[in-house]
Design a protein around this nucleic acid. Structure first.
Lengths: 156, 156
DNA sequence: CGCCTTCCTGCAACTCATTTGCATGAGCGG
DNA sequence: CCGCTCATGCAAATGAGTTGCAGGAAGGCG
């Protein structure tokens, strides 16, 4: 059994940065401070982060301009390394894409959970594959989005 | 003028206005021009309308201030007469609540369809009642939101 | 190792949906 | 018809996200 799998139990900051840099390189793009910092931070997150959260989180030791964070996030989404989630508060939230993401097609087959208390959004494993809803004639579904709202474990 | 069938299939503008006014009265609130106009327009819509669409639609003969439209919509949602939908474009869309809506609890058990071409959002009948997704320990679901994305009948 | 080209970053100013403050004006109960 | 409230309109503010532009760094190349 190849030892390639670093135990997912305790990824260190260094491990995450290495993973982030590797992903950026694989995308065939320049490895820059902001990209590395943003992706590393996203890899460490246990919930989908807003642009604001990310900017604030980086402000401490590796401040990145607001606009640059926006552009990095946009780029990450284009590369399929992250996906963006629209929330009730009209603010985008970003989360790394776990699992394979092929080319341009957004696979993105997992559900989201939005906490009505703290406002945080979490990515859930996967959604029931068989979502059947009656559509009016002529409508063609391309993607399904499932969001649960409630109270997260942290808020109870 | 050809006699119109009294079937509920073809509600006239007057019918809708009467229905709107009635709903407003039932809510125990003042019947005002803007409220009547906005709700009447919403009743006639076949899709969820944005604040902008509504304002534009009313501009023709019964112009209402932008801010007032916002406030009327907010009020309609509070009264359970309408519900708001968050879209990918970070713009709210409003639609009248079909069926019973009890008190404060948002029942709102239907799915939505968002067209990726024209951007319009439609309310679908209802969603499969049994949506089961594995949640992390301690999470409690209060509401489920299902949105389909694709191309609507009009855009094909 | 240093140059060059290309792409990235930071700054400033801008767009646009939505919100808030405030004074005037309109429902409607009496 | 009167007055009390609550709704409306206008102006200005908020805040997320965008765009234009000039300087600066990442990598390829010699």
């Amino acid at each position: 059994m190849p030892a390639k799998s670093s135990h997912t139990s305790t990824p260190t900051a260094a491990t995450r940065k290495a993973a982030a840099d590797s992903l950026i390189r694989e995308a065939g793009a320049r490895l820059t401070g902001p990209r590395s910092a943003v992706l590393t931070r996203l890899l460490a997150a246990d919930h989908a982060m807003t642009h604001q959260e990310i900017t604030d989180a980086l402000a401490a030791d590796q401040a990145v301009d607001r606009v640059t964070v926006y552009r990095v996030l946009e780029w990450l989404v284009e590369q399929g390394l992250a996906h963006r989630i629209a929330g009730e508060d009209r603010v985008w939230r970003f989360s790394v894409s776990r699992g394979k993401v092929t080319g341009g097609g957004h696979d993105h087959r997992h559900a989201h959970f939005a906490c009505t208390q703290c406002g945080q959004t979490f990515c859930l494993g996967d959604m029931p594959a068989d979502v059947k809803v009656k559509l009016p004639a002529g409508f063609r579904t391309e993607a399904v989005e499932l969001t649960l709202r409630g109270v997260c474990g942290h808020c109870r």
